[in-house]
């Protein structure tokens, strides 16, 4: 009699759910993307015309904006999170725990609430910042609201914790004596960062960077609330195809393009990272 390890049976419900609600929808999306334009049925009439027209019809720029936004956000949050993670790790204790908890807390406040807050803060005239400056110092300031920069600011604001927490785990993987050994052997501040800290913290950096990049790739609330009409991101373009243009195959093709970019980044990383090692600590 064949007996399977209990591990398999424990995994089975989760595997079934993920196949049904994650893998199957993706298959359907890919299928739809190969259908003739503006059709609503899944047939075997495959073709690549949606992909051909994706770039011809001007969907290149939204995809490009999303990629640029994701890249910039990843770089900026990383630059902000690294010193923060180093400080929190170095001075671990009660204060660091409180600060860490305070940074984590906003994750659980809806991003629509926080982005809305950022927009009333930045609003011209009677906004929180402009109004306060006017009332206290009689200074008139303009606004960055409804610009690409504002959308980027929102992305950095929302995704900072997603970069910080994996990075904290990564920084925690640097034993203090390795830094001392490098110092003892003549390494300066930059050499230590390059030769010891970054390689040892790499798993955490990779997870944080990947998470931030991927979340930003699909982000559209920031552009909608803060960016005004200054920028159209890929998600907004897909939504427009689905809902207003009623062109499901075209929307599906754009979705597949985003999924391909994501997969190209995520698959190699997931193959390399030993998540167990990061989590087990």
């Amino acid at each position: 009699m064949m007996r399977r390890n209990p591990g398999f049976w424990f995994a089975l419900p989760l595997i079934a759910a993920m196949l049904l609600f994650f893998a199957a929808p993706l298959v359907i999306v890919v299928w739809f993307s190969l259908m003739p334009p503006r059709s609503f049925d899944l047939t075997t009439d495959f073709g690549l015309q949606n992909y051909q027209s994706a770039f011809a019809d001007g969907y290149g720029p939204p995809l490009m904006w999303s990629l640029i936004g994701a890249t910039l956000t990843t770089a900026i949050t990383a630059a902000l999170a690294w010193p923060t993670a180093k400080i929190l790790h170095r001075h671990a204790g009660r204060w660091a725990s409180i600060v860490t908890a305070l940074i984590a807390l906003p994750i659980f406040i809806s991003e629509s609430v926080r982005l809305f807050g950022l927009s009333v803060f930045l609003m011209p005239g009677g906004g929180i910042l402009a109004g306060t400056l006017k009332a206290l110092f009689d200074v008139q300031i303009g606004t960055i609201l409804n610009t690409r920069f504002a959308a980027l600011l929102g992305m950095v604001y929302i995704h900072f914790p997603f970069m910080l927490f994996p990075m904290l785990l990564g920084v925690g993987m640097i034993p203090a004596d390795r830094i001392e050994a490098a110092q003892d052997l003549g390494a300066g501040r930059w050499a230590i960062l390059r030769e010891v800290e970054l390689p040892l913290a790499a798993p955490g950096l990779l997870v944080g960077g990947l998470l931030t990049f991927v979340l930003c790739l699909g982000a559209n609330a920031e552009a909608a609330i803060l960016g005004g009409r200054a920028v159209t991101v890929i998600t907004a373009a897909i939504e427009q195809r689905f809902n207003y243009a009623q062109d499901w195959p075209m929307g599906a093709a754009l979705t597949v393009l985003v999924i391909l970019v994501t997969a190209a980044l995520v698959f190699p990383a997931v193959r390399r990272i030993d998540l167990n090692r990061i989590i087990r600590r």
């Binding site: 034993p175 390795r178 050994a181």
Partner: peptide, 11 residues
């Protein structure tokens, strides 16, 4: 210095 933990660079 040769450290007690050796502090070798495992990477």
């Amino acid at each position: 210095m040769v450290f007690q933990s050796l502090a070798l660079f495992d990477h």
